[in-house]
Amino acid sequence: MPSVKIDCSQLHKILSNSEYPQDSVIATPHGLVVVEIQGVLNLPTEVTSKLNEERTDSKTIIEDNLSGVLPDELSQQEKGQADRMAIKIGELQFSEGSDQVTLLVNNTQRLNGTVEKLNPPLGLLKFTNSVHESGKQVHLIDIIEKKCVFKTRPLPV
């Protein structure tokens, strides 16, 4: 029966380091934000030539490598992989001292939602295929205690 160890060192680092902000409205101290929408978000499955044209002008497409999200040792392994393409889906608006959030999708639809406390909180786990020297294969990236939930139907902007 195979077994894998969960590496919690990143969580210990976040908890012991006061540099991580503790009071963000929507984000975890590590900077993660969870957005939950009802149904499915339809995204292009590949970057088309049309999207490529918009790339430089409006920053519709950017490249991302999860910098700062994964533990340092894991980032080195992951850096071997090419950067991922990310496409702009909209804009998230929120206010200090309020639990109301708004998601504008492509400037055509508006979703109104709230910031909810998760009970129980969720742990984000990263499963890696490569076996590290110490045998670690699963990393606990962060503990998520709140999420932005959009339960209502989209409204026109």
Partner: peptide, 12 residues
């Protein structure tokens, strides 16, 4: 109330 706004992207 101070409103903040962030662009939102998603991996393809």
């Amino acid at each position: 109330m101070f409103t903040m706004s962030k662009n939102m992207y998603s991996w393809v």
